[in-house]
Design a protein around this nucleic acid. Structure first.
Length: 650
RNA sequence: GGUCCCAUCGUCUAGCGGUUAGGACGCCGGCCUCUCACGUCGGUAACGCGGGUUCAAUUCCCGCUGGGAUCGCCA
């Protein structure tokens, strides 16, 4: 029984009916309607639910006040329940065990589609169906592939947000290891976490994962903290500022890991392993020699060891389950199912009591109350074993969000080999920090067609839902262009920020003690010409010297003997002018040109070179006005001197 | 090889079953112009392949191919 909001125009089959949801059938009969479509093809309803299918639904405790329209009668037994895919069966089970009536809508849809609803393909219907389940208060475990689900995802996201707010603010973290400079990929991870914390009023925790004692250094840590501050990514809890969940360096938390390891051992989820690294390496080598393709797994020598413990150092291993699977709902990637039989008894803690990554991360995220773990996709493979640890600990599992990877233009992992990968290098190149973050945030995240954002914008607009899943390649030109957009616009980079960014580079050029306000006055001329703060300092250079640094080629080309009379005339003209405003200068200059029957292009370049030392500057009269009469005259005299000297010598 | 993940211009992306497949960077050309820029106008260029579902597939489903991640007492 179909009700649809038909429009007669829709009968043509080309016009789309209203975009408002079109209500459809009473779904008591739902299973019978979708199942029987046996086309005789291989794509039967059952096979439509393959093991690759992504839709999972689970009843939640929610009650849905809106569920008054059309309903699937709870308890209805779907006739496709016998389909081979467990996932699909889960979905169907949700139907049959639903406590609340379900409402199914199709939107938007044209009337012919609504009419043919009973015959819709199982796959197609399943999508609609699960979307609506999710939207109606059912937790869909994971995002389905494809876009038909986006609406539900969207609504789901809102549900989630609301839920998280009710339970308490999100706590997110950035957990770099101080084994090198702060990598721009790491910055992106930090940024996404930071944005989420700021958007939701949550907490951004900074944790230093310094358990790799071989490579971690305090210097590297200091650099990371400094760069994060430079970017404006301040943390709410972490090194140097403390917090209620500290300490925030893993090497200062060793007793915590010890405590959790003991819990795990007591619960039988972990055990002491007395095998030495050498023994295992030898076994690994032996296996590789026998069968290069085979993958070595810990043989379980100490797994069920009985009797007295050997008097030897031991590591702690996880007793990994060999059956079942781990499923988690990634905020970006949707459902991820990983069978446990691929897990092995990984080492959790070294013999010296220092935890390995998975243990450290889980214990810290747990004890620091982290509610959402957002990190690079390269960590995705670590998530199932970490969830297993949470479960072994009887602890709540946080949410996860993985970000697609940023690759070098070659498609390889972004590394030093590619070029600049550390934040410091971009700072030294004079890239605007907000511009850098704007580039980074647009990498794997989008907001319609918008490209340029102020940080406030981003905080408001950011969401996991708009993250993409595909890896991408770093593009330095695009970064430069976006950073430039930020420097160009006073709205995006206020004068004071611009000055803060530029002054250090002026100092590097030996121009220290410069009057901030004097630079401020020049900013309008500079902004649209400087892609970076380095460019800005360069463009500002000759305003702050007695004499500019003369470019050799420019001098050779424009400060030549036959231009000397022009320069002299200009010099005399300028000397006679008291109102040194750009406007007045231009007017008087024009008169001179008319009088001498000259064209501006014959004179402008020599004058420009004489005054700035270079061929490319802002408008000539702006430059003259801002360099100021005394220095302009001095420079013209100097240029005249240069010409005289060279023609005398030549 | 096992496991996991992904797939729209060269690059970053929009797209949520009907679009002349949009924007941005890059590149090319025009305009503006005292130089350099900015700005502006225009051009270039993409749905990996094969099936299925549908009146209609870039979009939903499956397979293939391709790419990536990972398989450490690194993180």
């Amino acid at each position: 029984m179909i009700r649809s909001t038909e429009k007669s125009s829709a009968l043509t089959g080309t016009t789309i009916a209203s975009t408002s949801p079109t209500k459809i059938a009473t779904l008591t009969a739902f299973p019978a309607k979708i199942a029987p479509r046996d086309t005789g093809r291989t794509n039967s309803p059952a096979s439509a639910f393959s093991s690759r299918s992504r839709c999972h639904v689970r009843p939640t405790a929610s009650t849905d006040a809106n569920a008054t329209e059309t309903q699937i009668t709870p308890g209805a037994t779907p006739s496709v329940a016998s389909c081979p895919a467990k996932n699909a069966r889960d979905a169907m089970t949700a139907t049959s065990t639903a406590k609340n009536p379900l409402v199914v809508t199709i939107s938007p849809v044209d009337s012919s589609m609504a009419r043919s609803f009973p015959a819709m393909s199982a796959a197609c219907f399943r999508n609609r169906f699960t979307c609506e389940l999710a939207a109606r208060g059912y937790t869909r475990v994971g995002r389905a592939r494809g876009r038909a689900h986006a609406e539900a995802d969207n609504r789901y996201e809102k549900c989630y947000s609301a839920g998280a707010m009710a339970q308490g603010k999100p706590r997110v973290r950035f957990a770099p290891s101080p084994t090198g400079y702060l990598h721009i990929g790491g910055v992106r991870t930090a940024l996404f976490n930071w944005l989420w914390a700021r958007k939701t009023g949550g907490t951004f925790v900074l944790r230093i994962e310094d358990t790799d004692q071989e490579r971690s250094t305090p210097e590297n840590e200091a650099i990371i903290l400094r760069e994060l501050r430079w970017l404006g990514l301040g943390w709410d809890e972490g090194p140097e500022i403390g917090g209620d969940h500290g300490p925030y360096r893993q090497m200062e938390r060793l007793p915590v890991y010890q405590e959790f390891v003991e819990k795990l051992i007591a619960a039988g989820a972990a055990y002491r392993c007395y095998c030495t690294k050498e023994e295992l390496d030898a076994q690994r080598e032996a296996l590789k020699a026998r069968d290069p393709k085979a993958q070595f797994r810990y043989p379980g020598t100490c797994r069920d060891r009985t009797g007295p413990a050997p008097d030897r150092p031991f590591v702690i291993r996880f007793r990994a389950p060999s059956s079942g699977s781990v499923t988690y709902r990634d905020l970006v990637f949707g459902d991820v199912v990983t069978p446990n039989n691929t897990q092995q008894d990984a080492v959790l803690m070294r013999k010296d009591g220092v935890p390995l990554y998975n243990l450290g991360a889980v214990v810290d995220d747990l004890t620091m109350g982290i509610t959402l773990v957002a990190r690079g996709r390269d960590h995705m493979i670590n998530t199932p074993p970490q969830i297993l640890l949470y479960q072994a600990l009887g602890a709540p599992v946080p949410q996860f969000a993985h970000l697609p990877m940023m690759l070098a233009p070659s498609g390889e992992k972004l590394s030093k080999r590619f070029g600049a990968v550390s934040v410091g290098e971009y700072r030294e190149r004079g890239i605007s920090p907000v511009g850098l973050m704007n580039y980074l945030v647009r990498f794997g995240w989008s907001f319609g067609d918008e490209e340029i954002f102020a940080m406030q914008d981003l905080i408001q607009k950011f969401s996991w839902e708009n993250c993409s899943k595909a890896d991408g390649k770093f593009d330095g030109k695009k970064l430069a262009a976006i950073a430039f957009e930020h420097l160009k616009s006073p709205a995006l980079t206020p004068d004071d920020a611009y000055l803060d960014g530029t002054l250090p580079f002026l100092e590097k050029r030996g121009l220290s003690g410069i009057d901030r306000e004097a630079v401020r006055a020049l900013l309008p001329l500079i902004r649209e010409r400087a892609q970076t703060y380095v460019d800005a300092a360069d463009a500002l250079d000759y305003f702050f010297r007695d004499l500019p640094v003369y470019d050799e080629k420019a001098v050779k080309k424009f400060l030549v003997a036959d231009k000397a009379p022009h320069l002299q005339a200009v010099r005399d003209l300028f000397a006679s002018i008291d109102d040194f405003s750009a406007k007045n200068l231009e007017a008087r200059f024009g008169e001179l040109l008319t009088e001498k029957k000259l064209e501006i292009k014959d004179v402008a370049q020599p004058v420009r070179v004489a005054i700035s030392g270079r061929t490319a500057t802002p408008g000539l009269f702006d430059v003259v006005a801002l360099v100021g009469k005394p220095r302009v005259l001095a420079r013209l005299d100097h240029a005249l001197g240069l010409i005289a000297a060279s023609s005398g010598a030549g």
